[in-house]
Simulated scan of single mutants.
Amino acid sequence: MIKAVEQASPAVVSVVISKYVPVIEQCPYNPFSDLPPEFQQFFGEGFEFYQPCQKGSKLQEVGGGSGFIISSDGLIVTNKHVVYDEKASYTVLTNDGKKYEAKVLARDPNRDFAVLKISAHSLPEIRLGDSDTVKLGQTAIAIGNALGEFRNTVSVGVISGLSRKITASGAGLSETFEGLIQTDAAINQGNSGGPLLNLKGEVIGINVAMVSDAQNIGFAIPINQVKKAIESVRKTGRIITPYLGVRYTIINEELAQKEKLPVKEGALVRGGQDGPGVVPNSPADKAGIQAEDIIIEFNGEKVTQDNYLGKLIQKYNVGDTVTLKVLRRGKEIELKATLEERPKSL
């Protein structure tokens, strides 16, 4: 375990968020200035009145997170919510105490994942593991900038859940994440974006959220979910995400029983407050998918709670044509859809 930490920690960084904030001072003013001059002499003599006023602005640290170096020339992985503010500036502090200005290269449109770039070379880089091999009960090591203050804090626990779905909120954002790794290794405010490691010192997840009203329940994005996005940034400088265009609910036994569904697994195409089940003019719409369809297979792979639709889509590239096995009003049909790049508006 010590070897794993020693191997990985040089590549773990702190991400400092800075913004220009107003400088507020107490400025003198005359509350009787609206009165005619001949009356002003009767008011305010011997008194001084002040009110808050802005005297310019200053660059100030307003938050922090974590990240890790994935290339010796300065590519860094972190959470999107750490660097979501386009008006803020970001500074990276490396483990050897050096400070670098960071540029946000890409923010993933549908995962809490972002890539930064700093101008440097010969940096220590971390090895990416295989999150598909993660087992319940195996040791997990979280490293990060705990509470935004203590750099390279290490906590140890076990993998306590897989394929978790949660809704996390913070910094004015609320997002739903699927397929997360659950761990009891302590993940604190500021740890966001740091790595979750196995005993080989390899990254198996990106620390993303904690349950604030429960002890030792933290979550991480499996690293395999973002490997294609990392390669996309390396090759093109941006994240190109394949997109089908459906909103869905994963079917489990409870939902199947409650709604008297004909199957116990699959993706039920159904809209909600965030929009319709089938996005107009999307690949799904063009393929003929309808609301209340149940997608039971995606290109030959069964859709299940662990093998959920979003995970299957990410295995493919923009332009790939896939076959969907769909259950519609009790009948099985096959449809073909050509995946497109996810629109920025979604």
Rank of each mutant, 00 (worst) to 15 (best):
K55A: 11
E125F: 11
G56V: 10
A168C: 08
Q138A: 10
N95G: 12
S155M: 06
A114K: 05
V154W: 01
E149Y: 12
P109I: 07
L147R: 11
N110P: 08
I126V: 06
R151V: 04
K80C: 11
V104T: 10
V77Y: 00
S169E: 14
K80G: 07
D108L: 06
D85I: 01
E86C: 08
V115T: 01
P109N: 09
E149K: 13
K117P: 00
G63L: 02
D73T: 11
Q60W: 06
E61A: 12
L116V: 02
L136I: 14
R111C: 08
K103E: 15
S72R: 13
L147C: 09
A142Q: 00
N152A: 08
Y90I: 05
T133K: 15
S119E: 15
N110F: 13
A171T: 11
Q138G: 07
K87T: 13
R111E: 11
E101G: 12
E101V: 11
I141M: 06
E178R: 14
T183N: 08
A186V: 09
S57R: 13
P109M: 02
G144P: 00
H81M: 03
S163F: 14
T153G: 04
V62I: 14
K87S: 13
T167D: 06
S57P: 04
I141G: 03
G65H: 04
S57W: 09
Q51L: 13
A168F: 09
G170N: 09
D96L: 13
S122A: 14
H121C: 13
S169L: 10
V83K: 02
D112T: 07
A102V: 03
K165E: 15
G144N: 02
N145W: 00
T133I: 14
G65Q: 01
V154T: 04
V83E: 02
Q182T: 08
R111L: 14
Q138P: 04
V82G: 01
K58I: 11
L59V: 11
L123G: 03
S160M: 10
F177C: 09
A140V: 06
A186K: 08
L93S: 09
D85Q: 05
C53V: 02
I76S: 00
L116M: 04
V115G: 02
I143G: 05
D112A: 03
R107F: 00
R151A: 12
V156Q: 14
T176D: 03
V82W: 00
I159S: 00
T133V: 14
V156H: 07
A106P: 05
E86N: 15
E86V: 12
V154P: 00
A171S: 14
I69Q: 07
R164T: 01
E61H: 08
T176Q: 12
I126Q: 00
K103L: 10
K98V: 06
D85F: 06
K55V: 09
K87G: 12
T139Q: 12
A102K: 05
R151E: 13
A106V: 10
S155T: 14
A185W: 05
T94K: 07
